[in-house]
Computed example of a mutant assay.
Amino acid sequence: MTAIATTHALAQPASGWGRSSLTLPPLGNLDAYISAVNRLPLLSAEEERDYARRLQKHGDLEAAGKLVMSHLRLVVSVSRQYLGYGLPHGDLIQEGNVGLMKAVKRYDPEQGVRLVSYALHWIKAEIHEYILKNWRMVKVATTKAQRKLFFNLRSMKQGFKADAVDADTHRERLSEHEIDVVARELKVKREEVIEMETRMSGGDLLLDPSPGDDGEEAYGPIAWLADARHEPTAVLEATQRDLLASEGISEALDALDPRSRRIVAERWLKVNDDGSGGMTLHELAAEYGVSAERIRQIEVAAMKKMRKTLEAYA
C-alpha cells in the first residue's frame, strides 16, 4: 500500500483505528486527494497535545490517525517545493507522508514544540532521500544557483537549433555563440554555462549497482557516500572498545596482585612525555631482585589472567 493510500486508509472507519470523523471520499486522482486534504480541519494546540499523549501513553491509533490527517496539507505544501526535480508529484507526496508518519510516531508533546515544526524535518528528510535514490540531479546541480541554471539552460537549449553533437555522448551541445547568448541572458559567467553543459551532457551513473553475473557485489559511487562511523554495527563495536579500554582494563588490572599489576602497567600502559614507554624487563628485575626472565614470566601470566577477565567482561 502506498503512503497516500495509507493516509487515506487512516481516515476510514476501521477496528484498528476506531471510528474517526475525519473521512475522505473515494479518491480518483491526485487533484482530488489534494483538494480533500486541504479541507481537513486543523488541530488546536490543546487537541494536538491531547492526541499526542494518548498515542504516547496508550498507543491510541485513532489519535495517531488524527495527528497524521491534520498535517497532510503540510506534506502537500512541502512537496511542491521539489517539483523542479522532475519527479512525479504524487511520489513526492507519498514519501513526505512516510516522513510525517515517522514524525507522529516519535513526537513528544512535552517538549513544547508544535508537531508542524517537528514534522517538517522528517518530511523533508524523506523526500530528500527519495530524490537521492531516484534521480541523478544530485550530481548535476547541488546548489540552489546550479539548480536554477540547470532548468533555465535546459529550457533555452530547446529553443536552439543543434549545431554540434558531442562525439562521445552523441548528445547535442551548445555552440560558442549559444554559450555567450545563455551567459548573457541568465547573467552568469561563461565558464558556469560550460560547466553545467558538461554535467548535463554526461550519462547517467547508477549509484548502487546490482551484483554482476558472477554473483560478485558490484562497486558503485554510493560507497563514497557512506559514513561508516554512524553505521549501527560500527557504533556498537566502538562502544564496546571504549568500555573494554576503560572499565574492562581497570577491572582486569584490579584482579592482579600488586606486583603483577605494576609490571603490566609499566610494560604496556605507561607513556612518558617524550613518547617512550615505561620500565624495561631489566629495570624491573633490578627493582624486585629477580631475573629479567622471571619478570617476563610474571608478565605473561598476568596478561593471560587479564585476557580471561576481559573475555568474561565482554
Rank of each mutant, 00 (worst) to 15 (best):
A9G: 01
L10K: 09
L10H: 12
W17N: 14
G18L: 04
G18Y: 10
G18R: 12
P25H: 05
P25D: 11
P26S: 04
I34N: 00
A36D: 02
V37R: 05
R39M: 00
L40T: 05
P41Q: 00
L42E: 12
L42G: 06
L43F: 01
E48C: 03
E48I: 02
R49W: 00
R49I: 02
D50C: 00
A52S: 04
R53N: 06
R53I: 00
Q56S: 06
K57R: 14
G59M: 05
G59C: 02
L61V: 03
G65A: 03
G65W: 08
V68D: 09
M69D: 05
R73Q: 03
V76F: 01
S79C: 12
R80D: 08
L83G: 04
G90M: 04
G90F: 07
G90P: 02
D91W: 06
Q94L: 02
G96R: 05
G99D: 03
K102T: 04
A103C: 05
V104E: 10
V104C: 09
K105F: 09
D108I: 06
E110Q: 12
Q111I: 04
Q111E: 14
R114K: 04
Y118S: 12
I123V: 12
A125Q: 13
A125F: 09
I127W: 09
E129Y: 11
I131M: 11
K133M: 07
K133D: 05
N134C: 06
M137H: 10
M137L: 07
K144Q: 14
Q146M: 11
L153E: 07
R154A: 07
S155D: 12
K157D: 09
Q158M: 08
G159A: 02
F160V: 02
K161E: 14
A162I: 08
V165L: 10
V165E: 13
T169W: 11
T169C: 10
R171L: 13
E172G: 06
E172A: 08
R173F: 09
H177V: 14
I179L: 07
V182N: 14
A183F: 09
A183K: 15
A183D: 15
E185M: 11
E192W: 15
E197W: 01
M200R: 04
S201D: 15
G202F: 04
D204Q: 00
D208K: 10
P211T: 07
D213R: 07
G215D: 06
E216G: 11
E216H: 07
A218K: 02
P221T: 13
I222G: 07
A223N: 13
A226E: 07
D227C: 08
R229V: 12
E231R: 06
E231K: 05
E237I: 03
E237S: 08
A238S: 09
A238P: 08
Q240H: 11
Q240N: 08
L243V: 02
S246L: 07
S246P: 00
E247N: 05
D254E: 13
A255Q: 14
S260M: 10
V264D: 04
E266W: 12
W268S: 09
G275F: 01
G277N: 04
H282L: 13
H282D: 15
A286V: 03
A292I: 13
R294Y: 15
I295C: 11
Q297V: 09
I298C: 10
E299D: 12
E299P: 06
V300M: 01
A302F: 09
A302R: 01
M303R: 08
K304M: 03
K304A: 06
K305A: 15
M306Y: 00
K308M: 02
K308N: 15
L310Y: 01
L310Q: 05
L310W: 00
Y313E: 05
A314E: 06
